[in-house]
């Protein structure tokens, strides 16, 4: 069966006719909407490479049926930077070498953005490690990832305080 859904993806409204209700958000993005920045690492919710924000919350896009998302707002790695200006989390990953091969990186970054928004980890290294444990990195750039999330959290907190002042 086919099904129509409306989504906002990276700020753009999209009306999508799903050719197949079996399609996951991950395969919708990668195979149908030319947004392959979101990666498939396990397709089972066990690695986090496919992490995107749905309505502001980080989720595994591989376990999300696209059909369930009518009316949802989706943010992917492609929608994070503002033009040439990297998101603070992207900038921090770059500076702390929080990746090697780069394959898990979009998921790590989206997960970090989601974690920071959740607000429970702060810049506490232990809580960040725990909060980022849904994202495997086989190159094992974990130290850089943790440092990057700490650093980005601090920068974003400082920026928010500045904006508020």
């Amino acid at each position: 069966m086919s099904l129509s859904i409306s989504l906002s993806i990276n700020g753009a409204a999209r009306d999508i006719v799903l050719d197949d209700v079996r399609v996951t958000l991950l395969d919708l993005l990668r195979e149908r909407l030319a947004l392959p920045g979101t990666k498939k690492g396990c397709d089972r919710g066990q690695c986090g490479a496919c992490t995107v924000l749905v309505n502001g919350q980080r989720v595994n896009s591989c376990l999300t049926l696209a059909a369930t998302l009518d009316g949802a707002t989706v943010t992917t790695i492609e929608g994070l930077a503002q033009g040439d200006r990297l998101h603070p989390v992207q900038q921090a990953f770059l500076e702390h070498d929080g990746f090697q091969c780069g394959y898990c990186t979009p998921g790590q970054i989206m997960s970090a953005v989601g974690l920071i928004a959740e607000g429970h980890a702060g810049d506490d290294a232990d809580r960040i490690r725990e909060g980022m444990s849904g994202n495997l990195c086989r190159c094992s750039a974990y130290r850089g990832i943790t440092e990057a999330v700490q650093d980005a959290t601090r920068r974003m907190t400082a920026q928010a305080a500045e904006d508020a002042a």
């Binding site: 919710g45 986090g48 997960s111 989601g114 444990s133």
Partner: peptide
Amino acid sequence: GASGQIRNA
């Protein structure tokens, strides 16, 4: 249990 992503969904 599970991961932050899974707990959200």
